[in-house]
Design a protein around this nucleic acid. Structure first.
Length: 215
DNA sequence: GCGACAG
DNA sequence: ATCTTGTCGC
């Protein structure tokens, strides 16, 4: 079953929506300091049942402030470039259950480092009107810029810097944050290779999924 | 036409 | 993403 053969006209419409919404993405810092960041991830199998997990972490000492999980329904297939339509509802749903507030959201997936500048992280950020950061293991678009000045390398998209490579992860602006601050936050929250908000939410989602769904 | 393609 | 045990290596 090839997910790539989703009705072409639907893809065109959704692609157009992404292109239009990408214009609304804010790529600079508006808020003050980011003290608390929440990581979110979704775990699922081949069916429509999935588990979304969120973990709020204090940036200062990387302690966990709150955790939340939620069983959700996934109805949209995985199509590269359209991950937002598959996972954003689940992500937003688990975030809405949190009691504590947070200053930024770290998401598994790209922000503006996307074919139409509107990845999952941007979609969630725009919808919730919150600062979001995209963190992904692999590129879907873009080229690594050679001749790096720091230890990190930049990722070029349409001849402009749209992301950065940090500890093997591609970081990009989701919404309402600068790339510089996004990169700093990823570094600040990294003890090991993977940023704490990302790995904590991933593990929580996976374990909860196995517990309540896979039984 | 061929290959690539976040999770 | 997920299906899956042992196993190679720092």
């Amino acid at each position: 079953m090839n997910e790539f053969i989703y009705p072409y006209d639907i893809n065109l419409n959704l692609a157009h929506i992404q292109t239009k919404l990408a214009e609304k993405v804010i790529k600079k810092d508006l808020s003050s300091n980011i003290d608390k960041v929440v990581g979110v991830d979704v775990s699922f199998s081949r069916d429509e049942r999935a588990v979304a997990a969120a973990v709020i972490i204090q940036v200062k000492n990387l302690t966990i402030i709150e955790e939340s999980t939620k069983e959700v329904e996934i109805s949209f297939p995985y199509i590269p470039g359209f991950l937002g339509f598959r996972e954003s509802d689940a992500v937003i749903s688990v975030l809405n259950d949190l009691k504590h507030d947070y200053d930024a959201i770290m998401i598994n997936g790209h922000g503006i480092l996307h074919p139409r500048g509107f990845g999952l992280a941007s979609q969630v950020g725009l919808f919730l009107d919150k600062p979001t950061i995209g963190v992904a293991k692999r590129l879907i678009v873009g080229n690594l810029k050679k001749g790096d000045e720091s230890s990190d390398r930049s990722v070029l998209l349409h001849n402009k810097i749209s992301g950065a490579l940090v500890n093997g992860y591609y970081v990009s602006v989701g919404h309402k944050i600068s790339l510089k601050k996004a990169v700093n936050l990823v570094k600040e929250t990294s003890i090991f290779k993977t940023p704490e908000p990302i790995i904590k939410s991933h593990i929580l989602a996976t374990q909860t999924y196995k517990k309540i769904i896979k039984q």
